[in-house]
Nucleic acid binder design. Structure first.
Length: 404
DNA sequence: CCTCCACAGGAAGCGCAGGAGT
DNA sequence: ACTCCTGCGCTTCCTGTGGAGG
């Protein structure tokens, strides 16, 4: 692919040599700072080498700590080894975001067993039966990786784990094991105690990377993805520092450098410096903010719209003392009036003031606004609202949203 | 000190949608 | 297919709070 003349043409003016190597989806051959985790995982899975049932494993840690990458890495190594040694291992990876119920998970597995048949629409018991039969007949050690296991619907999770573990009681040959991956640290607490003990036979917590580790990870990727010496040390340091500060997410650090490189390309720069990284950070944050605003329910958008409008213009009202009032701090009462006016304008039904207060609280938890309780100088007891983001951006965004 | 104002936020209940049970 | 139940978004009603002003 790289031989294509257009690639060289593209590369000539780019800071990248192979952009895909710095995409968050790329899994490098070597996983730095995860030796211990890799060792543990392979140890727990090693019973398959004796055709026995490996442990159930629960892996958790924050976003971007390498959980999925490590598990997939170890699983693919194991798969290769098993193939080589003719071991009856069948590993399966699936992301529970796409398979949220026991039924869909089992259908997915059965579909793998019998690729040329279609199992959608069959009854639960039929699917379960097929599932067991295949494992029994082929005496396989079946290992299913359930990534983002916390995405499985509330009541389904206990049932799914129970079904999969109980399968082992009905099997004479072969086995079923589960590797659960979650970035929700509290997921385990909501499980039924029996589910918890069977799923968490072995547990691994993946710690966030610190700035130094992130730097090393970035350097490894930079060698693969960028031309030599185009990324400055300061850029690496800044990207690592930003990601370390925000919970040690390697994916975030990598993403920042990718964006910074793209910005350098657009500008026609031959170097990526800390400036581009900061710019990339701004850009990403803006994008996140915009998509958050646009995916807000319409009522919350209207409340935010009202706050943005109120924040924009200085009131210009001269108080009794002759001083200008605070310009961008707003009282909840006046925002409610503005909100009602906006509802009227766009023919939406306004909620009552009680529920409006809940909306205000919600917007605060999303971080769009910050609120304080009024003190001296304000009559009564009211919430003062300050917009945490640029008012004009919000207004432009929502104006086009509402005028279709 | 009392009253009024401008709210905050708890409690109860209502209408509706969607899932469970039969 | 039917009812029953439950959770959600919301309204109504209510009590509490703290500064301003007489």
């Amino acid at each position: 692919m790289a031989e294509n003349i257009f690639y060289t043409f593209l590369n000539e003016n780019s800071v990248f040599t192979d952009k895909s190597k710095i995409s968050p989806h790329y899994a490098p051959e070597k996983l730095p700072f995860r030796d211990e985790q890799i060792k543990d995982l392979s140890l727990w899975l090693s019973p398959v080498l004796k055709k026995a049932k490996p442990h159930n494993i629960f892996v958790y840690g924050k976003v971007g700590t390498g959980k999925t990458t490590v598990v997939r890495h170890v699983m693919s190594q194991l798969e290769l080894f098993a193939k080589d040694q003719h071991l009856p291992l069948l590993p399966v990876y699936l992301n529970c975001r796409n398979y949220q119920t026991k039924y869909t998970v089992l259908v997915y597995c059965v579909q793998l067993f019998y690729p040329d048949q279609n199992f959608f629409g069959y009854s639960r018991s039929f699917i379960y039966d097929k599932f067991l039969t295949y494992i029994k007949e082929n005496k396989i050690n079946f290992v299913v990786v359930l990534d983002e296991i916390d995405k499985i619907k509330d009541k389904e999770i206990d049932d799914l784990i129970y079904t999969l573990t109980r399968a082992n009681d009905e099997l004479e040959g072969g086995s079923v094991s589960i590797i659960g991956i979650s970035n929700n640290l509290f997921f385990k607490n909501n499980l039924d105690s029996r589910t918890k003990s069977s799923l968490c036979e072995q547990e691994a917590v993946y710690p966030p990377y610190n700035a130094e580790e992130l730097r090393a990870i970035l350097n490894q990727r930079i060698d693969l993805a960028f031309k030599k010496d185009v990324v400055s040390d300061s850029a690496i340091n800044v990207a690592a520092a930003i990601a370390a500060k925000e919970s040690g997410d390697a994916r975030r650090a990598v993403m920042l450098l990718l964006r910074a490189g793209e910005i350098a390309d657009i500008k026609g720069h031959t170097k990526v410096t800390d400036k581009e990284v900061y710019e990339a950070k701004e850009k990403v944050e803006q994008e996140v903010m915009k998509s958050m605003v646009l995916t807000l329910p319409i009522q919350l958008q209207l409340v935010l719209f009202a706050i943005a409008q109120g924040s924009l213009k200085p009131k210009g009202v001269i108080g009794l003392t002759g001083q200008y009032m605070e310009t961008n701090i707003l009282h909840s009462g006046e925002i409610y009036d503005k909100y009602c006016a906006l509802c009227n304008k766009y023919s939406e039904k306004a909620v009552t003031i009680r529920w409006f207060r809940e909306y205000i609280n919600e917007l605060e938890t999303y971080g769009f606004i910050s609120t304080t309780i009024s003190g001296k100088g304000v009559k009564g007891n009211t919430t003062l609202i300050r917009l945490g983001i640029d008012a004009q951006t919000i207004i432009d965004l929502l104006k086009s949203e509402f005028s279709e």
